[in-house]
Amino acid sequence: MDYATNVKILKFHPEKCKGCLECEKACSQVHFKTNDGGEKSAIRIHKLEKGYTMHVCDQRGLCLDMCPVGALTRRKNGVVWLDKDTCIGCQACVGFCPIGAMRKADIRIEPFKCISCGACVRACPEKALELVEVKIANIKQVVYHKLGG
């Protein structure tokens, strides 16, 4: 089987962002069919003292090995995908995500994450977001299971 070598991840242009959160609303529409954004969005925009920052999954895939039931897989397009019908809601991936990008909303037991669908990119009126292709080998991270400190 051929595996993806590249994956599209989100790139943020902070100088363009005005904090309208249209991206979050679009994302929560994808995942929960609501415009709530916030905890129901896989992409989060945080206000800093000056400007904004983006917080989202970068498809590094450390969570893949954490899933006891195989609900997390890397799809053909390289995206790390959580199949919520297989997921048993253990939150191991949430707890072990090194950047806290595996999300959990109170209304559903299964977590959710960025699937690089581009809904946020399309929703952004300022063009502050774009999808860029990177090599998986360059971003891949393996969960810690080594001996010693």
């Binding site: 191991a92 949430v94 707890g95 072990f96 080594k146 400190g149």
Partner: peptide, 16 residues
């Protein structure tokens, strides 16, 4: 979920 995830994080950070 809150209490469980807190423990997952503790294990991630400290078990090693």
């Amino acid at each position: 979920v809150q209490v469980g995830t807190k423990l997952h994080r503790e294990i991630r950070n400290l078990d090693r």
